[in-house]
């Protein structure tokens, strides 16, 4: 390298520079894996569809997608074929059992688990094409805060953080919230507590997270950050049964406690984020 350097070409890391989020797009994320992101994405989509919304769930966990397992759908055409130009976008969209549409990543997406500029632009193209056609688009993101996850979240207008009451899940959720606040200047993050064992524990946990954030993160910022508790999904044996049978819980046993809770979360979203269907 010469001593007199030319300024490096501007080539921004999207994990660090967020894009303008798209409207009506909800990113379902969590710090830790295995807390029920995909379960929440699919069943919330079904709950919203039941209330009259036109919903699309997009498998944004490009590396390790398992929305296909939850929905028991194994399509021939996936997002992978769209990204590689082998299929048209409209052919990759499927009707899912809960009355919503779904766009699955496909197992071949492992090669896209790194956020390259092609993945970015393909993802953006797909989103720009799809978002106008739906009332709500739910992005089922991967766990953790990899650059693909952060990129997917940066496209969403709302973040739904799923956590369980376990310390590990809360720590990872908290660390993720810190990243989203720092890198994407998020001011509102919506919290869903899954596998709650006690009524009211979700609100208490959210309140706790808020207090820690206010004390350790907000103190150094000039804007407040608001965590909004959207509801609890109780620990419910029906959920496990539906997962083991590879059925959508909202279809198999919508009246079980977890199903009722998801219906309530859908109503809460209507009150705060999504306009009621006409």
């Amino acid at each position: 390298m010469n001593d007199v350097l030319s300024p490096p070409a501007h080539h921004s890391d999207l994990a660090e520079v967020p894009l303008k989020p798209l409207g009506k797009v909800l990113a379902v994320t969590s710090g830790k894996g295995g807390v029920g992101k995909t379960f929440v994405s699919a069943n919330l989509a079904a709950a919203l569809a039941k209330r009259g919304h036109k919903v699309l769930v997009l498998d944004a966990d490009l590396g390790l997608a398992n929305l296909d397992v939850v929905l028991n759908l194994y399509p021939k055409i996936t997002l992978h074929d769209v990204f590689t130009g082998k299929a048209k976008l409209e052919d990759a969209i499927l009707p899912a059992p809960g009355g919503f549409s779904v766009l699955l990543a496909g197992s071949g997406m492992v090669e896209y688990s790194r956020l390259t500029s092609e993945v970015r632009s393909e993802f953006l193209r797909v989103m720009n094409t799809l978002v106008p056609n739906y009332d709500v688009v739910i992005l089922d993101t991967g766990a953790g805060i990899s650059d693909v996850v952060l990129f997917a979240v940066s496209l969403a207008s709302e973040v739904l953080m799923v956590a369980t009451p376990e310390p590990t899940s809360l720590t990872d959720a908290y660390a993720t919230i810190k990243v989203l606040v720092g890198q994407q200047q998020r001011q509102t993050i919506r919290v869903i507590i899954n596998q709650a064992t006690r009524p009211g524990s979700g609100a208490a946990i959210t309140n706790q997270l808020q207090q820690v954030l206010d004390r350790f993160v907000v103190a150094g910022l000039n804007q407040p950050i608001r965590l909004v508790h959207m509801g609890d999904i109780p620990l419910d044996p029906e959920v496990r049964q539906a997962i083991m049978r590879r059925q959508l819980m909202m279809q198999a046993t919508p009246g079980c406690p977890a199903g009722v809770a998801l219906g309530q979360i859908a109503r809460n979203l209507e009150e705060s984020v999504i306009p009621r269907p006409a």
């Binding site: 709650a196 006690r198 009524p199 959207m230 109780p234 620990l235 406690p257 809460n268």
Partner: peptide, 16 residues
């Protein structure tokens, strides 16, 4: 206070 969710006490409200 380890009592569990019963069918009748699933209450979810937006708290903000």
């Amino acid at each position: 206070n380890p009592f569990e969710f019963g069918p009748g006490n699933v209450t979810n409200r937006v708290n903000a």
